[in-house]
Design a binder for these strands. Structure first.
Length: 362
DNA sequence: ACGGCGATGTGCTATGATAC
DNA sequence: GTATCATAGCACATCGCCGT
């Protein structure tokens, strides 16, 4: 049984109204995500027409970040996965009619004389015009979730929220139901809580438009039910772009690696470089490196590395008017990233401001 | 029960060597 | 240029230990 079916089955008395859901069968590997990214980016340049498109395999390798590799097997098996991956959706139309359907991303893929020929599925082209659906597909594909359970839980929360048509929900779930949704029946609560529940909620809070808190209810000594308090973040930029069509290369594909390299070149240690590259995009980092260099030349910087880290975190190079809501040096993105569950925007801003006063950059 | 640390096992990925 | 194989390295899941 798929997770979706389980979720739908979960508690039909509680969830009265059906609503839009999207489900993708497989979980993609990194290469498959990248290849899909490449394909969407490429067909975006051709305005998503349903004709067969072709791009050189050499370029595909490059875009996948495999400069040295000649192993077409990687591409072949990724195409195979894309073709065999079924997207399933269930939408409530404006006129309350329900639409259900399944399709695949691409309808064909070929490797012919050094070129990759593919045909985008016409159904998907239609769906791309439906923003909410597309956003969800994008999230499913691109999601930065590291834990496999996070996605299942996110789907579950989103589903519960939209069924209730609310932005805030207090959801009580019996522990064994939660186990059956997540497929963790035999995990003792001790490990379940530490390795599944908490990390997943942490990921949902930091990567999605949801804020989730949880507490436990006991029956006797053992945990019986979990209470989730779910609310929608007010400000969450849900980008619909897979990649920037203006750019020659999809930045998302190589940006993080490039950013790490360049940060290392500027003397930051690997862990800081990794953390920054994860949180900020390549352009943002480059812009702030440039800004830092400028300030160094102007003699305004005592500690170059510390300044650089701070510049990136607070986007010194950014145009100030973009951050109207910044609280004296605390940017919006920073607040969203570091806000504690349940904390209001203003409270978080004040707290982070205080924290920063005491934090020391090496 | 919590949460940090680390050991272990497993599966995946990148890459080079080799042969066709 | 293409296909196959081997392998080192990495990421992740699981779970034990331990101080709190």
């Amino acid at each position: 049984m798929t997770e979706l079916e389980l979720i739908t089955k979960l508690d039909e008395t509680v969830f009265l109204k059906p609503t839009g859901t999207v489900h993708i069968t497989n979980s993609f590997s990194l290469i498959e995500r990248k290849l899909l990214n490449v394909i969407v980016w490429h067909s975006q340049k051709h305005r998503f027409t349903s004709e067969e498109h072709s791009l050189p395999i050499r370029d595909v390798f490059y875009l996948l970040g495999l400069k040295e590799s000649r192993n077409q097997d990687v591409i072949k098996s990724a195409i195979r996965t894309l073709l065999s991956t079924i997207i399933e959706w269930n939408i409530l139309e404006a006129d309350r009619a329900q639409e259900w359907g399944v399709c695949t991303f691409i309808s064909s893929g070929k490797l012919v004389s050094g070129k990759l020929n593919y045909r985008l599925n016409p159904e998907i082209i239609e769906k791309i015009n439906n923003p909410t659906l597309f956003a969800k597909i994008q999230l499913l594909i691109q999601s930065k979730f590291k834990k496999k359970h996070t996605l299942v839980m996110y789907e579950f929360f989103i589903d519960a929220l939209s069924r209730k048509r609310k932005d805030y929900l207090r959801l009580v779930v019996k522990l064994d139901k939660l186990h059956s949704i997540l497929g963790t029946e035999n995990t003792p609560f001790k490990f379940f809580n530490r390795d599944v529940l908490k990390p997943s909620i942490r990921e949902i809070n930091s990567h999605t438009d949801l804020d989730v808190n949880n507490e436990t209810l006991r029956l006797g000594r053992s945990i019986y039910e979990i209470v989730f308090e779910i609310s929608k973040k007010k400000m969450f930029p849900m980008s619909l772009d897979f990649v920037d069509p203006e750019e020659g290369l999809p930045p998302s594909i190589q940006g993080e690696k490039k950013a790490i390299d360049i940060l290392k070149e500027h003397g930051l240690n690997l862990s800081i470089a990794k953390a920054l590259s994860k949180s900020f995009d390549y352009e943002h980092i480059i812009a702030n490196i440039a800004y830092t260099e400028l300030q160094v030349i102007n003699g305004k910087v005592k500690n170059r590395k510390a300044f650089l880290v701070k510049a990136i975190k607070e986007n010194y190079s950014g145009n100030e008017t973009c951050n109207e809501e910044s609280y004296s040096g605390v940017t919006r993105s920073e607040i969203e990233k570091n806000a504690r569950p349940g904390e209001s925007y203003n409270a978080a801003a004040e707290r982070i401001k205080e924290d920063k006063k005491h934090s020391i950059y090496e």
